[in-house]
Amino acid sequence: MATDITARIIKQEQVGLGQYRMNLYAPEIASRAVPGQFVYIRCSSSLDPLLRRPLSIHGVNRERGELLLLYQVIGRGTSLLAAKRQGDQLPVMGPLGRGFTLPEPERRVILVGGGIGVAPLVFLGNELVRRKNPVLMLVGARSIHHLPLGREGGNNVPFNVTVATDDGTCGYHGPVTDLLERALAGREVDMVYACGPGGMLRQTAMLLARYGLPGEFSLEERMGCGVGACLSCVCKTTGEGERPFRYRRVCVEGPVFRADQLVWDQEECING
């Protein structure tokens, strides 16, 4: 069950262009969180900006009661968050949402992260490695300066990381989905998890359908309450019976959805 607590910042550091990593002391949340879940953070005690910001959980250290977050500054809320210092306190709700479904042991997994979308996938990858699943992470970013796990990427995680950049300044020159397609064509994988911009997810869903592989995506959408009450953060999903589609709430029915559940006929569905 989710709680709403006041959490103290243990550490905050910049890791890339506008990208920050934050350790929070939040034992009530860290002890219960599973990969794919998120927290809902109030970035300011003022009423402007008004809403909390949803941030996916990047990792936990249960012994120390710490919650690890990795986020990108995209607006006023996250700017205020980036200005916070060690010792500052923040209202934090969590853990919220439904996490990833974990595959059978031995199943080979590929994690596809676009930009800051790697945040929840690292938490998942660590868990999968512990469960003896072979894991490869593919990271796509605009440039070498936008790699949230750093230039070396894989040095801090217990699985292999391959990088693609849009401008070719690091790793493969092109979209990260090119790397995924090669892996799928080589039948090197049983299950794919992805998080990132809408275009990347859409392309990933297409590839999974073509190769007949299961996948799960973690989505982002503008959010109101974070607990399923306000119906603001919906995405379009497949319907049943007479209903051609159904809007599902990202905050409680997601943020993780099966790839084949998502309907991609409109750009508004996922804003990355």
């Binding site: 008004l50 503008r222 119906l231 919906v234 379009k236 159904r246 809007y247 508004e268 569905c269 804003n271």
Partner: peptide, 18 residues
């Protein structure tokens, strides 16, 4: 009722539009 397509919410000064 299925409701309206997203985005359904946007933050405004000291408020929200839904």
């Amino acid at each position: 009722r299925p409701g309206n397509p997203p985005p359904r919410i946007v933050e405004t000064p000291a408020g929200i539009l839904n």
